[in-house]
Amino acid sequence: GKELVLALYDYQEKSPREVTMKKGDILTLLNSTNKDWWKVEVKATANDKTYERQGFVPAAYVKKL
C-alpha cells in the first residue's frame, strides 16, 4: 500500500517545488531516497473542491507512520 507520513511541524513552502503542511497533517509519501527532502502528496480543499499537490518537504519535519 501507500506509505504515509505525519507532519511534526508546520512548514511553509519557500519555492514552487515545495508544499505547505500543518502539524498533524497526514501525507502520502512518494519518494524518500533523498535524506533531506522527501516528496509527498498533499490533499487540500479549496472552494469545496479537493485537489492534490505533489512537492517536497524537509525530511526532519515528518515521520513515517
Rank of each mutant, 00 (worst) to 15 (best):
D25H: 04
L8F: 02
W37P: 01
K2E: 09
M21A: 02
K14G: 07
Y11R: 01
A46Y: 14
P16H: 10
T28N: 07
W38S: 02
P16Y: 08
D25F: 03
T50H: 11
E41Q: 11
A46M: 14
L6V: 14
R53F: 06
E18C: 04
K2M: 11
A7G: 03
K43V: 14
N34W: 05
S15R: 09
R17G: 13
Y11D: 00
K43F: 12
L29Q: 00
K39P: 00
D10M: 02
D25R: 01
A7C: 14
D36I: 13
T45R: 11
Q12G: 07
L30D: 01
V19D: 01
L4N: 05
T50V: 14
G1Y: 14
S15V: 04
K35W: 06
S15G: 13
D25A: 06
V62K: 01
K14L: 08
N34R: 08
D48P: 08
A59F: 01
V42W: 06
D36C: 14
Y61R: 06
K22D: 03
V19L: 10
N47C: 13
E18Q: 11
F56P: 00
K23D: 02
W38L: 04
Y9L: 10
T45A: 10
L8Q: 04
K64A: 07
V40T: 00
E3G: 10
T33G: 08
G1I: 12
L30K: 04
P16Q: 09
R53W: 06
R53S: 06
L30P: 00
E18S: 05
Q54G: 05
K39D: 03
K43S: 13
K2P: 12
R53A: 06
E3V: 14
M21T: 05
A59L: 04
K39I: 13
E3D: 11
P16L: 08
K64P: 09
Y61Q: 06
E18N: 05
A60S: 14
V40I: 07
D36A: 09
Q12K: 12
T33C: 15
P16S: 11
R17Q: 09
Q54T: 11
L65W: 07
A44L: 15
E52I: 15
Y9W: 09
Y51I: 12
K23I: 04
A60K: 15
N31T: 08
D10W: 03
E3W: 10
Q54Y: 07
V57K: 00
K49M: 14
S32M: 09
K14Y: 04
L30C: 08
K63M: 13
I26S: 03
G55A: 03
K39L: 15
G24D: 04
D48M: 07
N34A: 07
V57A: 03
K14N: 09
Q12R: 10
W38N: 00
K14C: 13
S32D: 15
D10Y: 04
W38Y: 06
T50M: 10
N34H: 11
K63Q: 13
Y51V: 14
L8V: 06
K35R: 12
R17V: 10
Q54R: 10
S15K: 06
D10K: 02
I26L: 08
D36M: 10
P16C: 09
G1F: 13
N47M: 10
E13H: 07
P16N: 10
K63D: 07
V42F: 08
M21G: 00
G55I: 04
N34M: 08
V40A: 01
L29E: 01
V5A: 09
W37L: 02
K39W: 15
V5Y: 07
G1P: 11
E52C: 15
Y61N: 07
Y11I: 00
E13N: 07
E41I: 13
K43D: 08
K49V: 14
Q12E: 13
V57S: 00
T45W: 12
W37V: 01
T45L: 14
L4K: 10
F56W: 15
K35S: 11
K49L: 13
Y11P: 02
V40Y: 00
P16F: 07
A44Q: 11
K35I: 10
